[in-house]
């Protein structure tokens, strides 16, 4: 099944960079104004019981559910497989991670990277979006984090992605 959006494919392929650029401009602007940070939300709540940043992240989860539900009513063909746990099985992951592994592998892929992203980012003082915004504010350390993400993209596609799949299959997580 191929999902069909509001724009037909031959227009959508031109609209992708334009629409996402405008979305990014809005997010970057308001993220700078609010100091938006997901990791910081959990950290501030744990250390000081501050809820300001955490409310931003929880609102994001709720608003995305409301948004997807709304557009599922309006354009059901664009919302393929919504509501995912209902249509695809309780803990089946939405594609995006390296493919061809068993559902149990994606469960591990949620637990282990999640924990270490939390651990590393709280030490750095911000999640990826906070680092990106701090880089645009003139923070050199955050800029180096962003450069690391860029180089990491190529490293992941060239070596790590394949190595993770081979490793997981060798320990019995193949399909």
């Amino acid at each position: 099944m191929v999902a069909v959006g509001i724009l037909p494919k031959d227009i959508a392929i031109y609209a992708v960079p334009v629409v996402t650029l405008m979305l990014g401009l809005l997010i970057g602007y308001f993220a700078q104004r609010s100091g938006y940070c997901s990791i910081g939300g959990f950290r501030d709540f744990y250390l000081f019981r501050h809820t300001r940043l955490l409310s931003g992240y929880i609102t994001l989860i709720l608003a995305s559910f409301a948004g997807y539900l709304f557009f599922w009513f309006i354009t059901p063909a664009a919302m393929e497989g919504f509501f995912w746990a209902n249509t695809n099985g309780l803990f089946t992951a939405i594609p995006g991670a390296p493919g061809g592994l068993s559902p149990a592998a994606y469960f591990l892929f949620a637990i282990i990277p999640g924990f270490f992203i939390g651990l590393i980012c709280v030490y750095l003082g911000g999640c990826p979006i906070r680092q990106t915004v701090m880089a645009s504010e003139g923070n050199y350390k955050a800029a180096w984090f962003f450069v690391g993400m860029c180089i990491g993209s190529i490293i992941f596609a060239a070596w790590v992605s394949g190595a993770v799949v081979v490793l997981m299959k060798s320990v019995g997580f193949g399909v």
Binding site: I94, F116, I120, F145, M149, C150, G152, S153, F156, V160
Partner: peptide
């Protein structure tokens, strides 16, 4: 940055 990106991509 390199490590966080690898972890994030493994999760997707």
């Amino acid at each position: 940055g390199v490590i966080v990106l690898q972890l994030a991509m493994i999760f997707g």
